[in-house]
């Protein structure tokens, strides 16, 4: 064995280490190549995020309305039906802390922004904010240029596939193997063909709906509520200082969902919204939770609209925003 004390060159490993490193390289090189190819493939596959990111880059000088929220808003607002230039930056499980960071970090780019739309649906104040491990941190950084982390970014923060392998694997499968058009979007990143949901499976039969399982949070949490409300006030203060109109929306939900809501949660949310309406001047509300105009055939499941429902709800929002002038 060579005396390593005498020689300290960069490749001064002993024989065993060299063998180990060579085998390690031999094993990991195909893995690394596979990962790189996977990442390149996903970057070249259109996703809602990439389309919205491109739209944000191209139209940032013109955008007047920004919409934030969770999957309920993602599925219920199609910016195509809004008269003013707008962008829907909502996504599944997205909460107010993420909304606020995106707004904060895109505000300077959006010179003409005058209206911000926030979601306050039934359980919004009772659910924890997104954690620091929220998988969209990487996606938003890559496509929107928004850093949701409370630290400087590393190169690995830009990797997309690893942020949610399950989601992006489904996307790849749908695009390159199944090719069924289930992941097709319009120019605003809105899912055009999102009809194949629970309600369609049940043939839009309301009797079947009432028998089916409904995922709903009925648990009231005082601490989460207090924190979320206080955070929401900060968001509204920020918007007021920026001279922005604020629209708070509660998208339609179907009867079988509405019937299961915890009245206490509903009551304290509404009481907060009442206080907000008195405190802020530039704030407007659109609550369509129990709007009977939305029939079963407009829903994907009990709390998400399909593209037909989205058209109607977006037109309602459009009327409200136009009336602000």
């Amino acid at each position: 064995m060579p005396d390593q004390k005498k020689n300290l060159f960069i490749f001064n490993f002993n024989k065993h280490i060299s063998v180990f490193l060579k085998r390690g390289l031999l094993f990991f090189t195909p893995v690394a190549i596979f990962c790189v190819l996977l990442e390149l493939l996903i970057l070249n596959t259109p996703s809602s995020f990439s389309i919205i990111g491109n739209y944000l880059d191209e139209k940032q000088e013109d955008i007047e309305i920004v919409i934030f929220g969770s999957s309920q808003i993602k599925n219920s607002i199609n910016p195509k039906f809004l008269d003013k230039s707008s962008i829907n930056l909502s996504s599944g499980m997205q909460h107010h802390n993420t909304d606020f960071k995106i707004l904060n970090q895109t505000r300077n780019r959006l010179k003409k922004l005058n209206t911000v739309v926030f979601e306050v649906s039934y359980g919004h104040f009772e659910v924890n904010h997104n954690s620091k491990y929220y998988w969209k941190n990487n996606v938003f950084l890559k496509y929107y240029g928004v850093n949701l982390k409370d630290r400087n970014t590393y190169p690995t923060d830009y990797l997309v596939y690893v942020s949610n392998p399950a989601y992006f694997s489904r996307l790849l499968y749908a695009n390159y193997i199944k090719k069924d058009g289930s992941y097709t979007y319009n120019d605003y990143g809105f899912y055009k063909n999102k009809y194949e949901g629970k309600f369609k499976t049940l043939n839009y039969d309301t009797i079947q709906f009432s028998k089916s399982y409904v995922k709903i949070n009925r648990r009231a949490d005082k601490n989460i509520f207090k924190y979320n409300v206080s955070f929401f006030y900060n968001m509204l203060d920020y918007c007021e200082n920026e001279g922005l109109n604020i629209v708070i929306i509660s998208p339609p939900t179907f009867n079988n969902y509405n019937d299961l809501r915890n009245p206490f949660i509903l009551k304290r949310r509404d009481s907060i919204l009442n206080i907000i309406s008195e405190k802020y001047k530039n704030i407007y509300f659109l609550n369509s939770e129990e709007d009977m105009e939305f029939t079963a055939k407009m829903f994907w499941d009990e709390k998400h609209l399909n593209p037909d429902g989205a058209e109607l709800f977006t037109l309602q929002l459009n009327d409200l925003i136009n009336s602000l002038e």
């Binding site: 195909p30 596979f34 491990y133 399950a166």
Partner: peptide
């Protein structure tokens, strides 16, 4: 080695959201 690769692929494909 095939087994190890299978586990690496399982980790890449089925890793849950980071916790």
């Amino acid at each position: 080695w095939l087994i190890y690769y299978a586990f690496v692929l399982i980790i890449i494909r089925y890793a849950g959201p980071k916790e």
